[in-house]
Structures are given as C-alpha cells and as structure tokens.
Amino acid sequence: MPAFKPSNKNQWQDDFALLLERFKTFDEQPDLSVGDSQKTLIHQENKLRLFRYSARQVKQKKTPVLIVYALVNRPYITDLDQDRSLVLRLLEMGYPVYLLDWGYPDSSDSLTDLNDYINGQLYRCVQQVKRLNQIKKIDLLGICQGGVFSLCYSALHRSDIRKLVTLVTPVDFHTKDNPLSLWTQHIEPTALINTTGNIAGDTVSLLFKTLKPYQLNRDNYRQIEHLNKNKRALEHFLRMEKWLRDNPDLAGQAAVEFMHSFYQQNKLHKGQLSLADQAVTLANIQCPVLNLYAKLDHIVPPSSSQALAQHINPELYQEHALEGGHIGAFTSLKTQKKLTSLLVNWLS
C-alpha cells in the first residue's frame, strides 16, 4: 500500500456533529418544501394533473409554455425552490407557464401505454391550455423523456405547437457513449415488472445510480462542510435528496414499450416508430425546435440529443450546450442565467 498522510482530525465527523445541532433547534431547521410556486389545478384525469402557475406582475406574453417532464421522478424539479426554478424564471419573463404532472401510477394503471400518454393525456392537456388561452398553438418544453414525448407529439399534432424546446432529450439511443443504452440492450424489460404490473420507482432509481455507482451513492455525500456555512446550500442539498428519493412507479406497459422501442430498437431515430398505427416521423415537425443538451450528461449523452439535427429542417433548428449534468443543466445557479436567456430569446 502506498504511503498515506493521515489528517490530525476527523473533519467529516465534526461537520456532521455541527449539522445535527442545526436540526435540533426549530429556528435553524432547514425548509424542505418543494414546488411551492403558486399554482392552480386546471385539469385532472386519473392520476394526471395539469397546473397553471400564477402570473407575475410583468407584461404577459401571448403564447403559453407547457412543461412536460419525464415519467421517471417528479416534475417539481422544475420548481425546486425560489432560486432554482425554471418555472419562476419563465414567469418572471412574462410567460404563462403550465406544468403537466403525470402522478404516481398504481396497479390499475399498468396497462397505460405510450399512445395513452402521448395521444391521450398529453393531447388533452394541450387542448386545455389552448382553450384557456384562446389560442391555436402553444409552446412545448419537454425535459428528458418528456422531451421525447414532446417530439412525438409535435410530429403527430403539428397544428398544435408553435415552438418546441427539448431539454436533455435523447433522440439516438444507440450512440457509443451511452452506458444506459448498452445495458438496456441486455435487459428483458418484462423481467423488471413487479406484482403490481408496474416497474418500481426504486428499481429505476437504482438503475440510474448504477451508471455512476461510486459517485452517486457515495461521493456526493463526502464533503458536507459547506452545508454548515450556508443554510440555503443545506436546504438545496436536502431538497435535491428529497426529490431523488421521490420515485413514482412506471406504468408497466408504457415502460416496457419505451425500453423496447426506444432503448433497444432505436425506432424514433430510425424513423420506425408508430403510435396507434400512426408513423412518428421527426422530419414531419414543422415548428422551430430549440434543442438544449448538457455537456456532462451521463444519462443522455450530448451525442444522443444532438442527433435531432439529422431530422429537423436546419432552418427551423437550433441547438445549444449547457454546462453541467442531466439535472444541473436546468437547476444549477450557474447555468440558469444562460438557460433563461436562451429560452427567452428563442421563444420571443
């Protein structure tokens, strides 16, 4: 074993003891509330809920933005807290913001398929937003798998969408630098289905953590000194932890279909995907598309997102890289300014 220079004191233990002190007194206790921006429930259908956020006192833009998040994890990551809220940044710029929350599927939802999600639930949400705003087209902002759904939607319902933003969205699932894709080639997704007919959220979380097991399971918790110095940093850390542990189960049918069609057969990129016998051809998208990817994304490598350029008319297409990883790209304070500026310039 090589020589090693031990430290005189146990820094971590001291830091942790200090941290515990903070939790003991009520005044010091961090606030764990998430997704707190004021909003109204405007549509509900089974587990799905569609929210409209309250407008700020700024001049309002005409076209609303509907945010579509993935089925994995919860959409309140887009409104984690006041500082790290994509929703708030858009509201501050005068955009009417709507958020689609897919909810927590249970065993009665195990037969929900991708067509139900895209041509059913998402379609009805888009119609709701259109009607409420007395408008024929809306802007769609899809994140990760929500971006995939938004792409499919825009290809199938061209008259509904004015502009499309895809954020950390996979398109080519077979790029070389995609470990998740490599693994899923060898996984029979039906084996993941549990007795409820769904795939447990914890299982999905575990699979994602397996992409970088030592970093995501251990290293993220190694240094905690900064958490004692800054209450906001502590609150952010704890909110992220809360979000990471909040994993809805995946409706079995849709999850298996997604793994087969997208991860294993790469049908979207190959132009072979169809939903309810309708071909989903990305080249059919006729609205302007802004594709934002994260440089350090280990779940959706940049090359996977950038493949969208091969499908969209170059005159309608723009792409930009964001610093950070899959989630940091839209939650980090460092990237938020650039992200907001890109979104506002492009949507305007």
């Binding site: 918790y221 190694r222 905690i224």
Partner: peptide
C-alpha cells in the same frame, strides 16, 4: 429529516 440524515451518516462512516 431522519432518512436523509441517516443516509448522510452512513456515507460519512463509509469514508
């Protein structure tokens, strides 16, 4: 806060 702190504690002890 308990599950979050327990997890943090566990990671610290590992290191």
């Amino acid at each position: 806060y308990k599950p979050l702190l327990a997890h943090l504690n566990e990671q610290g002890l590992f290191y």
